[in-house]
Design a protein around this nucleic acid. Structure first.
Lengths: 139, 139
DNA sequence: ATCCTACATTGGACATTGTCTAAGTCAAGA
DNA sequence: TCTTGACTTAGACAATGTCCAATGTAGGAT
């Protein structure tokens, strides 16, 4: 994670206590927090951090390409620090849990030229939905 | 479109002026309105229709499988009446325009068993992003 | 080590999108 | 035509996100 902070500093990012804490909260492999969850966890370490700062910092991390924004349910966006590894998402339709998954092949190639309607297509997101083991156990 | 109203009546749907207007607004091939846009257009024909009714009706159409809910940007959900034809979406990153598109093969099969983590996967949505012809012309 | 200053943070108002409720209205069967 | 349970309404409320003016501070300059 200090890698991340190093990289950001090299890009001229001013390193404040608030930003450090937000970056630390996002540390991990299968982390998909909402902005409010990030704020709650950041507040544990830095009680006076404001919501606006959390939103600002998350927005910057997204712009810098360090974190991905995921909106699987039309409610709060979630933030995925696993931005440097190409992956897709598997979402439980019941409890909303998200897993990072890897697909075979490149989904971009599945869209034939005549179906591109003149768009310069540059990105694709694939979201699988189903019932997770925990939820299907407690039916 | 009267097909739709027929089908709904057969399922015990009570046919009111409000529901008829909402269904009419959603008529068309590449329609992807937000709830508020549906409400605005419905108000043209039936000025006293309330937001709550539009939300209720859209929710019911989704439950009945007649309309798909699409959330491409984490902001307002959009409603896609093209629910009976399997398709995916192509979104302009600049202006937000949405097109229905058809992909080659079944994206479900691209997720190998070990990547399913015990989920009963039943659904997949694929969203392509890029710049539409209009936006790339007006650079 | 201290000072400057541009950039970051704060708190709270505001905006957007969606949900809920109690009271009134109406479609459709008897 | 009457009745009744389902539908609609207005507006309050909730969740999420954005914006702004005032204040604070990281990090380069001295």
């Amino acid at each position: 994670m200090s890698d991340l902070l190093e990289r950001l500093r090299e890009r001229g990012w001013r390193l404040t206590a608030q930003r450090r804490v937000v970056a630390e909260v996002l540390n991990g492999d299968h982390v998909h927090y909402t902005a409010d969850e990030v704020h709650a966890r950041a507040s544990d370490r830095l009680p006076e951090i404001s919501r606006a700062t959390v939103y600002n910092t998350l927005g910057e991390l997204v712009s810098l390409g360090e974190v991905l924004e995921v909106s699987t349910d039309g409610r709060a966006k979630r933030y995925d620090p696993n931005a440097h590894h190409d992956h897709q998402h598997l979402v439980c339709s019941r409890c909303g849990t998200i897993r990072d998954v890897h697909v075979q092949g490149d989904p971009l190639t599945a869209l034939p030229e005549p179906e591109r309607y003149g768009f310069q297509v540059s990105e694709v997101t694939v979201t699988y939905r189903g019932i997770c083991p925990t939820c299907s156990a407690t039916t």
